[in-house]
């Protein structure tokens, strides 16, 4: 009975690890999979292998994968503004408060050794969302700034915390898109 329970949960965890979008969560699923695997070895009276599996599988391998995720470096940011058909760089580079936001994201990337790749586009945001290539989309209509992060990139959680803390005076909304949508609804752009 215990055996089948463990084997079944191993199967479930293996599938979860395969089909989970955010990689950090998938790594944790894999780690739990290893832990159960190690318990199963113990159940089959192979304590030697169980110790090795517990240490390697759920300890070192998890650490290695998490370190590898930290090196997920190029961070592609897309800036869309439908109000102006041609985007002026000046507002971003010179010191307006909104321009500061982009600079803030660049500094954030610098602190985490990410390589920001900024793209400016006059395309409507729904088209950019559909392409799904960008890790972060900054969408501005008038005064309202919406930041839409790709769920598959875990950096958005940290960035959200920082932005919400620092930019309470600006109307900054942080939304998610992409990945598997079981973690909440996707951001739907308003038609304007």
């Amino acid at each position: 009975m215990v055996e089948f329970l463990l084997l079944g949960s191993m199967l479930v965890l293996a599938l979860l690890a395969l089909y989970t979008g955010p990689l950090r969560i998938a790594v944790i699923y894999f780690s739990v999979f290893s832990l159960i695997c190690s318990f199963l070895y113990l159940y089959y009276q192979a304590p030697d292998v169980a110790i090795a599996e517990a240490v390697m599988g759920s300890g070192l391998i998890t650490l290695l994968y998490l370190t590898a995720l930290k090196r997920y470096r190029v961070y592609s940011v897309c800036y869309t503004n439908t109000d102006f058909p041609t985007v002026s760089d000046r507002e971003i580079i010179e010191g307006t408060r909104k321009g500061e936001l982009v600079r803030e994201i660049e500094d954030f990337c610098f602190a985490r050794e990410l390589e920001p790749q900024l793209v400016f586009t006059p395309q409507p945001v729904s088209e950019v969302l559909q392409s799904g290539r960008h890790d972060l989309i900054i969408h501005q209509t008038g005064d309202k700034i919406t930041i839409i992060g790709n769920r598959e990139n875990y950096v958005i959680d940290e960035l959200e915390m920082l932005l919400v803390l620092r930019y309470q005076d600006l109307k900054v909304l942080v939304e998610r898109y992409g990945g598997s949508s079981e973690y909440g609804d996707d951001y739907l752009p308003e038609e304007d």
Binding site: P47, D48, V55, L60
Partner: peptide, 28 residues
């Protein structure tokens, strides 16, 4: 685990991996 490796489960490799976790905890 290293010390009792010769007559209980475990041994050099397993104990070594655990000792490696010690260094790697420092890395974290």
């Amino acid at each position: 685990i290293i010390y009792n490796g010769h007559d209980t489960p475990g041994g050099g490799f397993q104990g070594g991996a655990i000792m490696a976790a010690l260094f790697l905890a420092r890395f974290i």
